[in-house]
């Protein structure tokens, strides 16, 4: 994907999210405001990405995990709380899926511990695509 298409994708989603806020607050957003919000979001990604990479490296990992994202959310108490809660939801839904799989595959044991789901995986293995 080119940079332009990536920016367009951010702009599209930012526009949808702004629309939701607009309906909620009964107000309108000017086009320039939406464009500015999506530009800011795009640049903020650079800060996010560099921080995440450094957090992982500091922990001597090459894979960024949820702990790194929590650290990224450290500046605001309520954001940290929200991200931590989301992280726990993810972990428990992974756990449930794991158990389902385990039941299905009962018998053909693979000799893995129950916490194997925490294994880092490449991002493009879209097993919990939404």
């Amino acid at each position: 994907m080119t940079l332009e298409r990536l920016k367009a994708a951010v702009h599209y989603t930012a526009g949808c999210l702004c629309q939701e806020v607009a309906e909620d607050k009964e107000i309108e957003f000017s086009k320039q405001t939406i464009a500015a919000i999506s530009d800011i979001t795009f640049s903020q990604c650079e800060i996010f990405a560099k921080d995440l990479e450094m957090f992982a490296r500091h922990a001597k990992r090459s894979t960024i995990n949820t702990e790194d994202v929590k650290l990224l959310a450290r500046r605001s108490q309520s954001l940290l709380k929200y991200i931590t809660q989301k992280s726990e939801e993810l972990a428990s839904s992974n756990q449930k899926q794991k158990e389902k799989k385990k039941k299905k595959n009962e018998g053909e044991s693979k000799g893995r511990s129950s916490e194997a789901q925490v294994q880092p995986m490449m991002a493009d293995s879209e097993e919990l695509d939404t």
Partner: peptide, 27 residues
Amino acid sequence: TKVSADALQLMTEMLKVFVQEAAARAA
């Protein structure tokens, strides 16, 4: 450098909150 699937999911949340906050505060 790679990103785990869970971390990626959390980052989509993070960016969503970022946009929502920007929009809500400006509103």
